[in-house]
Simulated scan of single mutants.
Amino acid sequence: MLPVHEQFYSFQGEGTHAGRAAYFIRTFGCPVHCPWCDSAGTWHPDYIPDRINRIAEEELAAAAAASKAEFVIVTGGEPSIHNLQPLVAALHQAGLKAHLETSGAFPIQGEFDWVTLSPKRWKLPLSENLSKADEFKIIVDSPGVIEEYTQPLNAKERPVWLHPEWSQRENGEVLNAITDWVKAHGAPYRAGWQMHKPYKADFLDPNSAQVAPLGGDPNKGY
């Protein structure tokens, strides 16, 4: 059984599979604690609910299959602090592809069909996970982090998405840094955006959890 913060049907708003119908399973727990985390309800003590649901993997797979989603995204928090092998096996048994969104800082358990790795400076990815990634997502909260994060990736032909950190989405310095980097380097770098947020797509599903402020800090917004 897995501790689950929320499960809901929406579309993938980021990366290579953006715009595709997806079922999300968001687990509880994360030791990384990014100060701008947009899922702080999975770990921040002020926003974790009093009751945490633990749900059997087969039940999660059945709910995902019933949605008719194109694939399932396992995210967090940091999902890889849990053993995800039983969940992936249940999803595959139900005929669903399993995608993972992870910082890469913990061993990945489970044969995922797609891995999005988003490195964080507070706990860097394991070298073994860099080779497992199908795409990378860098959260740009200041211009200097692009070079900091891209140097060790050895991305080659795999996409490297540069996303403005959500509280900085109107910061011209951050946006210009992404634009300049993509223009100067070309592939595999791509400018990214969290497309589901202006749509507010996730909240159309009543099973989506109440949103917490970025990093658990109301001053940063939502």
Rank of each mutant, 00 (worst) to 15 (best):
M1K: 01
L2P: 03
P3T: 03
P3I: 04
F8N: 06
Y9K: 11
S10C: 06
E14L: 11
T16A: 13
H17V: 10
A21S: 11
T27S: 09
T27A: 10
G29Q: 04
G29E: 04
C30V: 13
P31W: 03
H33I: 07
A40T: 03
T42S: 15
H44M: 13
P45N: 04
Y47L: 02
D50H: 13
E57L: 03
E59P: 05
A63W: 01
A64V: 11
A64P: 01
A65M: 08
A66R: 12
S67M: 08
K68A: 14
A69S: 11
E70P: 01
I73G: 06
V74W: 01
I81Y: 08
H82K: 10
Q85G: 07
Q85K: 14
Q85E: 15
P86E: 09
L87Q: 05
A89H: 09
L91K: 01
Q93N: 11
L96F: 05
L96C: 09
K97L: 11
K97E: 13
A98D: 03
A98I: 03
L100V: 08
L100Q: 02
S103W: 02
P107N: 03
I108K: 02
S118M: 02
P119M: 10
K120D: 06
L124Q: 15
L126F: 03
S127N: 11
E128P: 00
N129C: 07
S131M: 13
A133W: 01
A133Q: 04
D134N: 14
D134L: 06
I139M: 14
D141I: 13
D141E: 15
S142G: 11
S142C: 11
S142N: 14
E147N: 11
Y149V: 12
R158A: 10
W161Y: 14
P164G: 02
P164N: 00
S167P: 02
R169S: 11
R169Y: 04
E170P: 01
E173Q: 12
V174Q: 06
N176V: 04
A177K: 02
W181E: 05
K183P: 01
A184R: 13
H185L: 07
Y189G: 00
A191E: 05
A191K: 07
A191N: 02
H196C: 04
P198G: 09
P198I: 07
K200E: 12
F203K: 08
N207R: 15
S208G: 13
V211K: 10
L214N: 01
G215R: 06
G216Y: 09
N219P: 01
Y222Q: 15
